[in-house]
Structure formats: structure tokens, C-alpha cells
Computed example of a mutant assay.
Amino acid sequence: MKTVLAALMAAAISTSTAFAGEIGDRAAEAEKLLQSGDSAGALEKFRGAEDALWEAMPLAVLNVKHVDTAAGFGIYTERANHIYKPGEKIVLYMEPVGYGYGSDGLGNKQISLSVDLTVVSASGEELGKMEKISRVQVASRSRNRELFFKLDLSLDGLPPGKYRCDFLMHDENSSKTGPFSTDIEIAG
């Protein structure tokens, strides 16, 4: 708990001043409650600090992996390499953070994310751009933070060679966007 608390405090320092005080204050209150034996109260205050940090942070995409399968958050089989046969499906696993929550109109919080793609050659030439190639929507009674996004990508028609795929994830509940990239190779 102290390691997580230290990481939260470090993150609080790098966020905006308005949120930094709130995050640090809530985390400090959580630590005091824990030391006094009120673990339930400490967890509630700590979650409040986490909420403030989540709202202040930008949208980011963590743990981008080329995978063979992905069945849930942290449940995936990583692919041995980034080399694909012509026409072979590319499957990416990723964990977005910092997204907002909307409403589905039924009392649930709704997470809505979409992804754009730009394919870039090894020489840096932009070969093509596609908007909203994939989208995920999740409705839940709670503010889920363990969310995975599985992206099935088809790049049929690309000749053999090395490429960079630049992505831009959009949070449809806010104006936040999060860029990320991965390299691929189409075998000859």
C-alpha cells in the first residue's frame, strides 16, 4: 500500500496545481486513516485521490502488445514477433487510462473509445490514414479502470517491408486523445 501511495504522490506532483493539492490531500488522509486502523475509510479516501488523478491525467495507452489472443484485462498471449504474412490479421492488445465516463441512459457509466490509424513507411512517408477503425463501448455500474482494448487490424495490400502504425485514441466522453505507435513488418 505504501508503494502505491508513493507512486500516487509522485504522480500528483506532475499534475496540474489545482488537482495536485486535492490528490495529495486525499492520499495523506488515506494514510492517516490506515495508520489509525480504519482500512475501509482509508481505501475510500485513497479511491477519491485516484478519482482526482484519473480526471486530471491525459488519455494514455499503456501496455500495447502484438498478441495471438486477448480475452480480458491482462489476459492475453503475446505474439513472438511483429512480422506478419501478407494479408495476415494483426491483433493488438492495449490498456487505455485517463478516459472519461458518460451515461448510457440506464443508470450506467459508459466508456466510449475509438481509434484512428496512420500507416508510415520505413522512410517516414505517410501511406494512408483511416479514422475510427475500431471502437469500444463498455457500460458498467462502477467507474471501471481495468479496461482492455483489442484491435483487429487488416493491412491487406501493403507490400513487403517495415512500417510504423501511428494510432490516435479518442475518448468520446471528453476531448482527450492519446497517441501511440507500434512497428510491424510484412514478410516478403
Rank of each mutant, 00 (worst) to 15 (best):
1 M>A: 14
2 K>H: 13
3 T>R: 02
6 A>P: 01
6 A>F: 01
10 A>Q: 12
13 I>M: 01
14 S>T: 15
15 T>K: 02
15 T>V: 14
16 S>R: 13
16 S>I: 14
19 F>E: 10
20 A>H: 04
20 A>N: 09
20 A>D: 02
22 E>N: 12
22 E>T: 15
23 I>K: 06
25 D>F: 05
29 E>T: 15
29 E>C: 07
29 E>G: 07
30 A>F: 02
30 A>P: 01
34 L>G: 07
36 S>L: 11
45 K>R: 08
46 F>D: 00
47 R>T: 11
48 G>R: 02
51 D>K: 04
54 W>A: 04
56 A>W: 01
58 P>M: 13
59 L>I: 09
62 L>W: 10
65 K>Q: 14
67 V>C: 03
69 T>A: 12
70 A>E: 05
72 G>D: 13
74 G>D: 07
74 G>K: 02
77 T>A: 11
78 E>L: 10
79 R>K: 15
81 N>P: 00
83 I>E: 14
84 Y>R: 02
84 Y>M: 04
85 K>F: 14
87 G>V: 09
88 E>L: 06
91 V>D: 08
91 V>Y: 08
94 M>R: 00
94 M>S: 11
95 E>R: 06
96 P>W: 01
99 Y>P: 09
102 G>Q: 03
102 G>Y: 07
104 D>A: 09
104 D>V: 12
108 N>T: 06
110 Q>W: 00
112 S>G: 05
116 D>M: 09
117 L>I: 14
121 S>L: 11
121 S>E: 07
122 A>Y: 11
123 S>I: 03
126 E>V: 01
129 K>C: 13
129 K>I: 14
132 K>A: 15
133 I>T: 04
134 S>W: 10
135 R>G: 06
135 R>Y: 10
141 R>A: 15
142 S>E: 13
143 R>G: 13
145 R>N: 01
151 L>K: 08
156 D>P: 03
156 D>M: 10
159 P>S: 04
162 K>S: 15
163 Y>M: 05
164 R>D: 07
167 F>C: 14
167 F>N: 03
170 H>T: 06
173 N>D: 02
174 S>M: 04
180 F>T: 06
180 F>D: 03
180 F>R: 02
183 D>Y: 06
184 I>P: 03
185 E>T: 15
186 I>M: 08
